[in-house]
Amino acid sequence: MRDTVVKNIRQRFRSYSLLFEQIAEDSLTLQLPVAMSKSVGEHMWCIVGARESYTRALLNGKWDGFACSLKSDSNYSEIKKALDDSSRSFDDALAAVKVWTEERDDLLVHLLEHETMHEGQLIRHLYALGETVPSSIKWA
Rank of each mutant, 00 (worst) to 15 (best):
Q121E: 08
Q11K: 14
S39K: 13
F13Y: 06
D85S: 06
E25G: 09
R12K: 15
A57T: 03
I79K: 04
Y76G: 07
G130H: 15
L108F: 01
G130A: 12
T55K: 01
V109R: 09
S27A: 15
I123Q: 02
M1E: 07
K38W: 09
S87E: 04
W45T: 04
L28C: 09
T101S: 11
K138A: 05
C68G: 06
L30P: 00
H125Q: 07
N75R: 08
K71R: 14
P134S: 13
S136R: 14
G120Q: 09
T4E: 14
A67L: 06
R56Q: 13
E52R: 11
D105V: 05
V133H: 03
A50E: 04
F66E: 01
G130Y: 14
T132C: 13
T132D: 11
H110P: 01
W100I: 09
D105R: 05
P134L: 11
E131H: 13
L30R: 13
Q22L: 13
E102K: 07
E21A: 14
L18E: 03
V40N: 01
A93N: 08
L122Q: 04
S53K: 05
D106F: 10
R124H: 08
M36S: 14
E119A: 13
H110E: 10
T132N: 12
F20V: 04
F90N: 00
G41V: 09
M117C: 07
G65F: 05
P33C: 15
F13G: 04
E78W: 07
G41L: 04
E25N: 13
V97M: 10
A57G: 02
C46P: 03
